[in-house]
Design a protein around this nucleic acid. Structure first.
Lengths: 104, 104
DNA sequence: TTGACATGCAACTATTTGGTTGCCTATTAT
DNA sequence: ATAATAGGCAACCAAATAGTTGCATGTCAA
């Protein structure tokens, strides 16, 4: 879980996930196109995404195809974000009460 | 949005949010209890959480009360995670097809 | 009013991170 | 066979991060 949060912390990596969401199964070179960093930098980001299990690779000849795995993202939604949505309204109203109390 | 992802990337900060979720409106010293880092380290984490608008503070005398703001977490769920959940099944089946194709 | 308590500020440090360059290897096409 | 293509590896670098220590300030209670 920590690895997933860490992987998602970088905007370049999130944009790689976006690109895979738009078009799945891209090669490394495809994913490098239009980006202002070297292929090696992109490789490093993809390794981090693989280690967080957000991307799965399939080697085909000299090419490396990258596939998005949406499961960890879904799990963050289910196991982490939802927890804070329960009681969301309660938290906000408590804060509001406190802010008003300050000016008494 | 980037600030929120960055703020959530650290396990100590996520656990601070958890603690505020369990008991809202805690002081700095309260939040430090039981943690194996100095008060100053906790302060730095809280500043990052404030800047990401995940925590709101209310000063009361010499104390500083911390309140959880669940809105940015909710927004990540809505604006980011949901996007990847649409088409989740499609992505997985495409990957499966590709993995099988490899062994033909 | 003086001491205890809650927090703030600044300087410093070690480690991690995001990126680079240079070169090497494996596969495909001519 | 050989050149072009796709990717891998390792060393290096600068900046950001997570933490520390030491001291200062503001507030409350005896």
């Amino acid at each position: 879980m920590d690895e997933v949060f860490k992987a998602l912390a970088d905007a370049s990596r999130r944009s790689l996930l976006d690109r895979l969401h738009a078009k799945n199964g891209q090669t490394l070179n495809e994913l490098c196109e239009g980006l202002s960093m070297t292929r090696q930098a992109v490789t490093k980001h993809l390794v981090i995404l693989e280690e967080a299990d957000l991307v799965t690779i399939v080697r085909q000849g000299r090419e490396k195809l990258h596939y998005l795995n949406p499961v960890p993202i879904h799990q963050i939604g289910e196991r982490w974000i939802r927890k804070f949505e329960r009681g969301k309204l309660a938290a906000l109203s408590e804060l509001k009460r406190q802010l008003e109390k300050r000016d008494e």
